[in-house]
Design a protein around this nucleic acid. Structure first.
Lengths: 194, 194
DNA sequence: GTCTATAGACGGATAGAC
DNA sequence: GTCTATCCGTCTATAGAC
């Protein structure tokens, strides 16, 4: 099955453009990325990009189709049974993504991140969310705990207010708080090694 | 303190532009929002926007300065003590944001969300993350549980890979999995009413 | 304070030569 | 298959009249 080396008789310009597109979309976001920029990154003419992939939107969608199917990966992890599932999922996700930037979900997330807004966002999270929590906790591991809590806050807002995934988007605030609260509490004051 | 009605002798065009900017940035994202669009929303000439706020970037920053200081809000919640802090924070956040769209953090988040990418993202989360989990769980509340897990995944990716907030961005995958795993596990198979 | 007019730049997309 | 040339639209930003 291994297919090493360059196949003779065919150029791989198309794949090079695709790779360049993935890198550029991930780095600059969908809006920030330009056809011209992608072409420069791939060292080809901008017209070639259109020639192979049509519109910018089609290129983006094509760039999302990646060999490694994340759903299949997830299914594999699930198949090992419910015990310790949470830890296995997180470890698998992070391990894959730490080592592999060409990842569709990561590319999607980074494509969301506008270059000018992302730094403001980090600033905001650090100052308005993490810092007050760190001061309130006052423990050596406060920074980790506060950041973990922030990750849950951020994900909740993402799912509820931006992506509006049901049923979480429509659940009453009090009910969500009742369910999510204990998890945040564990991050802040609970035993993290258990 | 109440200030009802329009004050005589001064126009409030500036505030109207600012409000329009907040609405537009929240709805369309930073890139998607245009000075022209904001001006139209405020029913004024585009040049006026520049006149009052300078560049688009300055307008964005100004729009972020909101009367309600989220850090102060958070401090108030923290001051009530560590017991039940997690639930109180989540409830306070959601309650404020459910009723008030003119919120800086929410505006930042939505400004991240490109109009073309956000739907793809929702699709991806629903199909590649939530659906496999729902099928694996097979319980009536599987949808809620899977969405909650997705919220933690998303927040983690946001903090670790997009915003790169330390120390969470540099922690080894295995350690993050050990810490975050139990929280995900609770969402998937734990008792949500406790 | 408000608007008209426009400069100036950029990016997506296409036609067509080679 | 690849590139040149270019059209066309959109945007920010400014100068200046009223």
């Amino acid at each position: 099955m291994a297919r090493t080396g360059r196949r003779p008789g065919a150029t791989d310009t198309r794949d090079e453009i695709l790779d360049a597109a993935r890198r550029t979309f991930s780095a600059s976001g969908y809006d920030g990325a330009t056809i011209r920029g992608i072409a420069a990154e791939a060292d080809v003419d901008p017209a070639l990009v259109h020639h192979y992939f049509g519109t910018k939107d089609e290129l983006f969608v094509t760039a999302l189709q990646i060999p490694v199917n994340p759903a299949a990966l997830l299914s594999g992890v699930i198949a090992e049974g419910p015990e310790g599932l949470g830890e296995r999922i997180v470890r698998t996700m992070l391990t894959v993504w730490d080592s592999n930037d060409a990842n569709p979900l990561l590319m999607l997330l980074r494509s969301l991140a506008n270059e000018q807004v992302a730094p403001m966002m980090r600033e905001f999270v650090a100052h308005a969310i993490v810092r007050p929590l760190v001061e309130a906790l006052g423990t050596p591991d406060a920074q980790v705990r506060a950041t973990l809590a922030a990750s849950q806050f951020g994900g909740l807002m993402m799912v509820r207010y931006v992506l509006k995934v049901e049923p979480l988007a429509s659940l009453p605030a009090a009910e969500v708080a009742r369910i999510v609260g204990p998890n945040v509490q564990r991050y802040l004051t609970g035993d993290l090694s258990s």
